[in-house]
Design a protein around this nucleic acid. Structure first.
Length: 481
RNA sequence: GCGACUGUAGUGUAGCCUGGUAUCACAGUGGCUUCCCAAGCCACUAACCCGGGUUCAAAUCCCGGCAGUCGCACCA
């Protein structure tokens, strides 16, 4: 990695997409702020996600970040969302306990701290680094604790604990698709790479509930072939539909969400050739998952997980049913079942970084361009007076206020020269710039300048402001051009 | 968390070795210019990561902390 990535980090800070949090106090790793442009970009992405799932009849909720202990006791996060770890007294190196056991030729797999301590006291565990005997064994949980509560490591549990209310809302029908956009928190040991590994991050999760006997949803349709890496080691480039039909993706609902995710990510701006789906190896899966496929995006030359699509079976509902006062059983016809869950979980911060990185390029003259598409670009268009002349400024402001009621994502700029303003908009991804010049004062025409081709076209102001949607008028103009 | 390297205006940097409070560019503000791809000129604003030590004097040398990059480990 690191070429384009560095440019993105620098651009983001300078222009206001994102930057490290709390930097006036020396910084604090694992936390990032979204700036004025980043907020717009993020909201646009979440909006695409929400609208895409509304198409499937999804419903959405919003639940607390702080969550009481019993919820995570039931979900398995208290016991299993942690690593047994140990530390060498002498050289202070910390290890996963598993690593030290392997090093010492011990095959036992302790399930909890008691078992781990027992193994540790019966064997002399040598430190792989200095050879000293390791005594200190402890449990490192990846959740943040706040008094007797935990900050949720995923938004999903907020949906599971509300299953019955949601099911009732949904008129007792399956499949049921429920989404939540919100924050998740993980105590990462070493946060790295800006938005890639954050301690506090943005998630958009979908929990889709099914009759366990029919893990089927929607219709698979033909779409672009995409790289698929099942855990057999094979590599395919196929449409998702073909992958399902040839058994590479094991169930229809999983295939449906892989396909949906591919299309959504493409729409957001992840390039299809820089996207792949990789199935987890069995030992790689989360404690709740029976099968998992990650969508991975290419940033420079490294692949990063941006979406995880997991088959959670009825693991969560069964556990909440057993540990709470609520039964999670539903009646379908004659049978009583606990629904199965397929979960596509979107890491918004990573998606943002991927989109920016994949959209970024330098022109021959060295100037930056962020070729964001109109769905996610913070601003749709910019309006300029050619010069800082009162008559041009007035005319430009007039055009701005006529366009604004129809599209709020417009920016007015008269700072610096016209060339600088074009360059500035290129760098923040604005697809169209509209310039008022001296000719405008005579014939009410303006120039429209296209970000990607840098070409211009002159049109009548009235042809633009008479449109219900000026952006689509500009899109049409681009196609004609 | 370990190791190596690093930390100077909003951004990117020079200065650090060989101590004397800081260079340049871009961005920003004001002014002049009929100027369509980061134009020019003038003026202004703006920084030595934090703490301690050595010294008459520390951006510079020493120690500690914090943060970043890379490598190892970690990534449910």
């Amino acid at each position: 990695m690191i070429n384009m990535y560095n440019d993105i980090i620098e651009l983001s800070k300078r222009r206001g997409f994102f930057w490290p949090s709390f930097s006036i106090y020396g910084g604090f790793s694992g936390f990032y702020d979204y700036g004025p442009l980043g907020v717009l970009l993020k909201e646009n992405i979440i909006k695409l996600w929400r609208e895409d799932y509304l198409e499937d009849g999804a419903i959405f909720i919003d639940t607390p970040n702080l969550t009481p202990e019993p919820v995570f006791k039931a979900s398995g996060h208290i016991d299993r969302f942690s690593d047994l770890a140990c530390e060498c007294d002498k050289c202070k190196t910390k290890f996963k306990l598993e690593t030290v056991l392997k090093y010492n030729g011990i095959n036992a797999v302790p399930k909890n701290l008691d078992e781990a301590n027992e193994i540790s006291s019966k064997n002399n565990l040598k430190c792989p680094v200095c050879g000293n005997i390791i005594k200190k064994v402890y449990d490192f949980n990846l959740m943040f604790r706040a008094n007797d509560m935990y900050l949720r490591p995923e938004t999903a549990q907020g949906i599971f604990v509300n299953f019955k209310l949601l099911y009732n809302y949904n008129k007792n029908r399956l499949p049921m698709i429920v989404g939540q956009a919100g924050k998740g928190f993980r105590n990462e040991i070493s946060p790295r790479q800006s938005l890639i590994r954050l301690k506090e991050f943005n998630q958009c999760e979908i929990e889709s509930f099914f009759d366990p006997d029919s893990l089927e949803f929607g219709e698979l349709y033909d779409y672009l072939p995409v790289k698929l890496l099942p855990n057999t080691g094979d590599v395919y480039k196929k449409t998702v539909k073909e992958a399902y039909e040839s058994g590479i993706i094991p169930n229809q609902a999983m295939a449906y969400f892989v396909l949906k995710t591919q299309r959504l990510l493409n729409k957001i701006g992840i390039k299809n050739e820089m996207l792949r789906f990789r199935q987890h190896m069995p030992d790689e899966r989360a404690h709740y998952a029976a099968d998992s496929w990650d969508a991975e995006a290419l940033i420079d030359d490294e692949w990063f997980e941006i979406v995880g699509i997991a088959n959670r079976t009825n693991f969560d509902l069964t556990n909440h049913g057993n540990n709470s006062s609520e039964s999670m059983t539903v009646k379908i016809g004659e049978k009583e079942v606990i629904p199965y869950v397929i979960e596509p979980s979107y890491g918004i911060d990573r998606i943002i970084l991927s989109v920016m990185s994949q959209s970024f390029y330098k022109r021959d003259n060295g100037y930056n361009v962020l070729a964001l598409n109109e769905y996610v670009a913070p601003f749709h268009m910019a309006v300029f007076p050619l010069l800082k002349k009162q008559k041009l400024q007035e005319k430009a402001k007039e055009l701005f206020s006529n366009l604004f009621p129809k599209d709020k994502y417009i920016i007015y700029d008269d700072v610096g020269s016209i060339g600088k303003r074009y360059a500035r908009q290129d760098e923040i991804g604005t697809p169209y710039c509209i310039t008022i010049d001296f000719q405008t004062l005579d014939d009410n025409t303006v120039t429209v300048r296209f970000r990607d081709s840098m070409q211009q076209k002159r049109i009548l102001i009235s042809d633009l402001v008479s449109q219900e949607n000026p952006l689509s008028a500009l899109n049409a103009l681009k196609i004609v051009q």
